[in-house]
Design a protein around this nucleic acid. Structure first.
Lengths: 154, 154
DNA sequence: GTCAAAATCACTCAAAAGTATGAGCTAAAT
DNA sequence: ATTTAGCTCATACTTTTGAGTGATTTTGAC
């Protein structure tokens, strides 16, 4: 805990010690000058130089770095398919129609879709017809294309 | 030209003037203190404060502002379609076949593709047949699906 | 229980897609 | 010069798809 305190206030403590040392040093040269009785200006000059240095040191120490935020756009290929519920309800697509749409997107024929869903070919035809109408397209390829654009399928 | 010179050395000139003024000021308070005969320490203290301030000012003036760059990575989903040349040569697809494939992916019918490319419907049929064989698929929907997987089309 | 939407299926007809085969023409490679 | 690959087109035929219509059954909501 005491180490922690020292660490946190390192600069302040250092500054205090430096100042104390400086004052002590000044007192010492003051004494010397009194004894040797030299000119006043030399003493003042030394003080000036020392404190200029102190000021510089202080400023450098306390000068907070300016933070510049740099935003780097990182290209990421994302797997972010989120089903577009809105589009589905908007178009009035039923669950079954969506099933058919998905299988259609996999490239299955109507016959294959029928077998996959255990219904007749005619049923699938009806579904696809309704799908095309709802999606406002003429062909299955267009339906798949549009469905992908609308995020109804990945 | 003289204005130019002044502008370029503004800081230096300013520093010189300030220093001159300070020295003049010091001389003045020195005189005052001599006349009033005050303690030496007050004078030294004033010098100390003044030159500390000067040091700070100098440091701030001459020190290049520290810039800390904070980098924030922003994930951006990118349109990163890069045509898979390898797959194309691997499958032995011709330019024309790729053309047809692209239009097919847009949901065009063979007839529409034929009109778009100014050739006959039969030509397109030939292309699609060859395409299906090369892609090892049975239907156009599968062809489009596979082509997308292979990055032959976006 | 009623009603509406959804799902199922059938039938017909037309259009589009796909298969198979053959062939001419051109440009590039051997 | 010959071969090869790619593009073109045609004919004949089959399969799939799609449009249109109508009907029955299921299901969920009111």
């Amino acid at each position: 805990m005491i180490l922690n305190f020292i660490n946190k206030n390192r600069d302040t403590i250092l500054y205090g010690i430096s100042l104390a040392f400086l004052l002590f040093f000044l007192k010492w040269i003051e004494l010397r000058f009194i004894i040797i009785n030299h000119t006043f200006e030399i003493y003042a000059g030394i003080i000036a130089v020392l404190f200029t240095a102190l000021g510089i040191w202080l400023a450098l120490k306390l000068n907070k770095p300016k933070v510049e935020t740099k935003i780097i756009e990182k290209a990421v290929s994302v797997n972010d398919f989120s089903f577009n519920e809105a589009a589905m309800t908007d178009l009035g697509l039923s669950k079954r129609e969506l099933d058919v749409l998905q299988l259609m997107a996999e490239g299955l024929s109507n016959q294959e879709i029928a077998e996959r869903l255990f219904v007749s070919l005619n049923t699938i035809k009806t579904h696809t017809s309704n799908l095309f109408e709802k999606l406002d397209v003429k062909r299955r390829t267009q339906a798949v294309e549009k469905a992908k654009r609308l995020s109804l399928i990945p």
